Lab assay of single mutants.
Amino acid sequence: MTFKLIINGKTLKGETTTEAVDAATAEKVFKQYFNDNGIDGEWTYDDATKTFTITE
């Protein structure tokens, strides 16, 4: 399955996707992406659209 990440950061904005077997696996991938890029904020997940959103 394809999961999308929408980034609404102070310095970084955009979208990316990842292929994962489930939302929990995608969450781990995206959290690592947050850490690697110094993004910290509030994030949500919409199961209907398989979209994670992080807002700094």
Rank of each mutant, 00 (worst) to 15 (best):
A24G: 09
M1V: 12
A20L: 02
F34W: 13
E42T: 12
M1S: 12
T16F: 15
D47I: 06
I54D: 00
I54C: 07
F30L: 04
T16Y: 15
D46V: 04
K50W: 05
V21L: 13
E42L: 11
A20R: 02
E56Y: 08
T17M: 10
A20E: 03
K31R: 14
L5P: 01
D46I: 03
T51H: 01
A24Y: 09
I7E: 01
F34N: 14
E56P: 07
K28N: 08
D36F: 09
T17K: 08
T49D: 03
W43D: 00
F34P: 01
T25R: 05
G41A: 08
T49Y: 03
D47M: 07
K28W: 09
D36M: 08
V21F: 11
K31A: 06
T25Y: 06
M1T: 12
T44W: 08
M1I: 14
F34A: 15
I7L: 10
M1N: 12
D40F: 14
L12T: 10
N8G: 03
F52G: 00
M1C: 08
K31S: 06
W43P: 02
T16I: 11
K28D: 05
T51P: 00
W43I: 10
K4H: 13
T25C: 06
E56H: 05
F52N: 00
I54P: 01
E19I: 14
T18Y: 11
T16V: 11
A24R: 09
A26N: 00
M1K: 12
Q32R: 09
G38C: 11
D47A: 13
Y45S: 00
T49N: 05
K13Y: 11
F52V: 01
A48H: 11
F3A: 01
K10W: 13
K31Y: 06
G14L: 15
A48K: 09
Y45D: 00
G41I: 08
A26S: 01
F34E: 10
K31T: 05
K4I: 14
K31V: 07
T51F: 01
E56K: 03
A48M: 10
D47R: 06
Q32S: 08
T18L: 12
T18N: 04
D40K: 13
I7W: 11
K4C: 08
T55E: 06
T2Q: 10
K50L: 13
K31H: 06
T17Q: 10
Q32H: 09
I39E: 04
T55M: 05
A26L: 02
K4D: 02
E15V: 05
Y33H: 05
E42A: 09
G9W: 12
T18V: 14
D36R: 09
A20Y: 03
K50D: 02
K31P: 01
T49G: 03
I7V: 07
D47H: 09
D46G: 00
K10D: 08
E42G: 04
E19T: 14
L5H: 00
K4T: 13
G14R: 11
T55S: 06
N37C: 14
T16P: 02
F30E: 00
G9C: 15
F30R: 00
T2D: 04
F34Y: 14
D36Y: 06
L5G: 02
D40H: 14
V21K: 13
T55Y: 07
N37Y: 15
Q32E: 10
D22A: 02
K13R: 11
K31N: 03
V21S: 12
Q32Y: 06
T44S: 11
